[in-house]
Amino acid sequence: MTTMAASADLARRATVNNYSNESRPVQILLISVALIFLSLVLLVPLFCVFTYAFEKGIDVYFRALSDTYTLSAIRLTLFTAAIAVPLNLIFGISAAWLIARFHFPGRQVLLTMIDLPLAVSPVIAGMIFVLLYGQRGLLHPIIEALGIQIIFAPAGIVLATTFVTLPFVARELVPVMLEQGSAEEEAALTMGASGWHTFFLITLPNIKWALLYGVILCNARAMGEFGAVSVVSGHIRGLTNTLPLHIEVLYNEYNFTAAFAVSSLLALLAIVTLVAKAVVEWKYSKGNS
């Protein structure tokens, strides 16, 4: 689109924002209702986390964080994310390349399958791994023979987390790659670039922001997953408690300050995720203008 047409389009939208719209008092009323609703449902709980975390002072806050069990929960959470996220990153790229660059029978079915983990309740997501690898599970004889434990062990937590966070990278990449089309890649091929060259020199730079956001989202979910992990974990303190499970334990012991202190770490992660998303969207809107 030429700049002229773009600015004409902008002018058109601006018109709608001005005169052929609701009167300003009505607008202010609607805006107020929306903002009050957002505050009550979203903002107040977020504030609550930090307020309660620091309620008894900074010392108590840091003491709660440096507790042995908290530290082991942090370690386990990082360990889980360090495996689940790279796996789903590779899967996401592979699936997006397949779906956005080729047409083949079953493509739509595949796209739906990638969304499956989102449609399944986290409790059920955890349950299926118990059914497979648990005491009376289908594959229990095999893993017992191999001498490994999956359920009530970190391995199960990693599996459940990988399942739950599987769609995130792919779902970010597919729409972006579909919209960009394959023209640039075809151009690179006609100029003599090999497949890998094309991917690393052309495709990757074009999708890097969406990829980054997908990874951040995937990571946030991997570190924060509660339901699925809760089923397979067994809640063994110091061994199989991730951060969200540790929060539950602390909360149920009425150790509210510690629970919120640990929560504040995850809330911070959430805020970073939101900022990252805003940055990515800003990058794309800049790139398209």
Partner: peptide
């Protein structure tokens, strides 16, 4: 494959590499 044909191709929508 196209890589080995030694051709130059100009696309209607340019297909300029936007990050370069």
């Amino acid at each position: 494959p196209p890589q080995l044909r030694g051709i130059g191709f100009v696309f209607q929508n340019y297909a300029i590499f936007r990050h370069m």
